[in-house]
Every structure is written in structure tokens, then in C-alpha cells.
Design a protein around this nucleic acid. Structure first.
Lengths: 211, 211
DNA sequence: TAGATTGTTAATCGATTAACAATC
DNA sequence: TAGATTGTTAATCGATTAACAATC
């Protein structure tokens, strides 16, 4: 029975990993795959894969496994990754310009269509065909191109201010790379990529295991 | 009573956020802070802050709050962030070179001391004073400098192979930016920064809330 | 002392894992 | 049919939140 809603965030993230690995198996010519086979590649228990899928519906054949092609297509559709999704990068520093051409986004159909900055030296330049625009013109751009997602790569000091501008301009979702907690209105989606706290947690674990 | 071990990963990550915000309050001249005041900046319940701290020990004064200076120093020490920690970047592409100068690492005392690549065009160059070395010489470098942490920014195809080389060379912890699941021996610490699955989860949530 | 805030216990909530009936 | 594997229920595990006694 197809359920909906209240799907755990971790289930969603794992599902994207499933799609990636299913694509790779498809490349190798695999047509049918079992929960045991796919999870052995991912270092997770088979039950978790089946449980995760059960949030979306039923996709397998008992005694047989899952049709790789159909599973890929269905999962992509359910997550909204079956069509190109446009996004912009805000803050065209080292990190921002790296994200403009990050291949992992293309894999899931996310396309960066522009970058923004307030530095006149950067405005007008382009990276791999993606232009850097003046942040002053961001609202026009967002409306014209119907962009809903922004990757926020500005310095910590200005992250909240720029986030406010983005929302004012019509952005609905922010992937935040600045190590600050953004305060945002209801209805805005936020995910934080906090590289420093990831590395910090590694340092702590190392301390524990070495001692 | 000071406990240890089995501290949840999420508690560790939040603790790093606490340190960052305590530093900022310290800059503003705040000497004493309550769980309510700090968590109001972080959008989390005060009880979570106190619960998190309780994994490490007792640091506050009832009826008063926490001494900002002492709390910062103690938490840093407990996490192993009170002294400089050396790390290397492996894969000197766009993302790798961005990480070399990422200011968020310095904030928590992590210092990138070198970058490695197998591309002869990159080897010998330097970014902000950090040299790019031939990956062939990585083992010597790691031993000589006693490096334990690597930031892995190579293409997905080679991530597992390069990870094996790193471990062989003596690396104990890997922060992996490639969208693959690495299979590693017991005792090696791993954290994954999966930007694509973060953005994918945002797309799904947007789909749900808009409909 | 009275008011405030901690540290911790207990209750709640949610996610993971195990087990197994359903069924291909 | 016999063997295999799914989908789901129930059990377990862990994390978050609420409540409050301790105490500054």
C-alpha cells in the first residue's frame, strides 16, 4: 500500500544513495537485484532497505527481487528527481565556484544556472559557462527563471542577511554552507552542510579510539 | 559526575556549534550565559543543551548559568580541539583547493598542511601557501608530519582506491566528499559529506510542502 | 530568603533491526 | 513443489523532550 508523508529525512537521503548505486549496477548490466545484494554494497542491513522502500510503496517481487530499471525510475519520480531542477549559487568564492561544477549535482538532475556575488571583480566573469551576476539583480533572475533553490556560500557574517534577501526574492530552499544557524520563516526548507563540525566529530572519535 | 564514551554523534556535532556560538558571545563581552539564552540563538530546546553537556560533566552554576570562558575552554579540551590538528587534502580539484582555505576549519583549530594530486600540471603549484604534492610521496609526508586526517576530494571512480592508499600510508580518519560508500577496515573513522543527497532531500521536502 | 537555573530522571517519540508470514 | 525474497509487524534501541528536585 502506497503511503506518504512523515518519511524520515534519513530514509530520503538513503534513497538517493540507492538511486546512485542502482544506476551503477544498471551500467554493469544488472537487471534484477535483491535487497541483500544492494545493501552489501552500502554496508547497511537489508531490512533497512526494504523498510525504507515501504514508505513509498511496494516495488519488488517476492522470491525474486527488484527490477533495476523500474526501481530507478520510480524512486526518482517519487523524490522529484526525474526532471531537471534549477539552482543558483550565492557567493562566488572558492567554495561557491567549486559547487558550480560539482558533478554530483548533475547525477541527480540538479543544474546550477547562475552564480551571484557583490564583488565587482567577480561580477561578469564565468565558470564553465555559468555567469557570475550582481546580487542586486537576483530577484529579477529568480522570478524570470523560476528558481526555488539556492546554495549559500557567503562568509558567516553575511549569511543571515543574504538568506533574508534570497527569501525576499522568492527562494524556497537553502543549502547552507556557512557555519551559522539561520533563522528562517515557516515554510522555507533548509539543510546545512557543516564541514567543520563533521571534521570536529572525527577528531573526537579519533581521540576516543586511540586512547 | 563526568561520564565518558557512548556520546551520541549528534551531541558531538552540536557541541561544536555550541563552541562556535560561545566564542561569538565571548567576542561581544558576554561572561555568563544560560541554557535558555544560548539555545535561543540555535533554535533548539534548552533541555537539549543541558542534556548534551551532561554527557561530558557538570559545568554550570544553578540559578546562575555558565561561565562562557571556562565553558569554551573545557569543551574544546574535551573534544580535542584545544590544540592544532593537522590534516591534508587529497585531490586538488576545485573542491579540494576550496577546502585548503576554508575558514571554518581554522575556527576549530584544524590546519591543512598540504594537498596531494596525481596530475603533473597541479603538482608543484600552491594555494595560499599550501603546496600541492605528488600523491606518490604521500606516505613519507604522512609519517614525517604525523598526519592522521585526510579530506578526500577525488572523483567517485577513484575514491575507494585512494582511500586504500591513505590507510596504507597511516591515515586514521577520512572526511569523504565523494558520493560513494567507502569500505574501510575496523578502527578507521569516516564521515561523509554528501552534498547531492542533502540537496536531494531538500527537493523532496519542497515537493511535499508545495503540493 | 525567594527566584532562577542547573543537572538528571522519567516519559515520549522515532528510528533501526529482527523475525516471519505472504507469495513469487 | 521447494527455495528464495519480499513487505510488514513487533521488538529493540537510542535520542529528544518534559518535568522537577537540587542548589546557587
Amino acid at each position: 500500500m502506497a503511503k506518504k508523508h512523515n518519511i524520515p529525512v534519513e530514509t530520503i537521503k538513503r534513497t538517493i544513495t540507492y538511486i546512485r548505486y542502482l544506476e551503477r549496477e544498471k551500467q554493469k548490466g544488472v537487471k534484477i537485484i535483491s535487497s541483500r545484494d544492494i545493501t552489501s554494497l552500502l554496508n547497511i542491513p537489508p531490512a533497512q532497505f526494504r523498510k525504507d522502500l515501504s514508505f513509498f510503496g511496494e516495488f519488488g517481487k517476492r522470491g525474486v527481487g527488484y527490477n533495476v530499471d523500474i526501481l530507478i525510475e520510480t524512486l526518482k519520480q517519487l523524490l522529484g528527481l526525474d526532471r531537471k531542477v534549477k539552482a543558483i549559487v550565492v557567493g562566488a568564492g572558492r567554495l561557491g565556484t567549486a559547487l558550480v561544477q560539482y558533478p554530483g549535482f548533475l547525477e541527480i538532475n540538479v543544474e546550477i544556472i547562475g552564480a551571484f556575488d557583490n564583488d565587482s571583480k567577480k561580477i561578469g566573469q564565468s565558470i564553465k559557462g555559468i555567469d557570475i551576476y550582481d546580487i542586486k539583480n537576483i530577484k529579477k533572475f529568480i522570478i524570470k527563471n523560476n528558481v526555488k533553490i539556492a546554495l549559500l556560500c557567503v562568509p558567516s557574517d553575511s549569511a543571515q542577511i543574504v538568506a533574508n534577501i534570497l527569501i525576499e526574492a522568492g527562494i524556497k530552499s537553502i543549502l547552507n554552507f556557512a557555519p551559522v544557524v539561520l533563522i528562517l520563516p515557516e515554510g522555507i526548507n533548509i539543510a546545512n552542510v557543516d564541514m567543520a563540525s563533521e571534521i570536529g566529530s572525527i577528531i573526537y572519535r579519533m581521540k576516543e579510539t586511540v586512547q
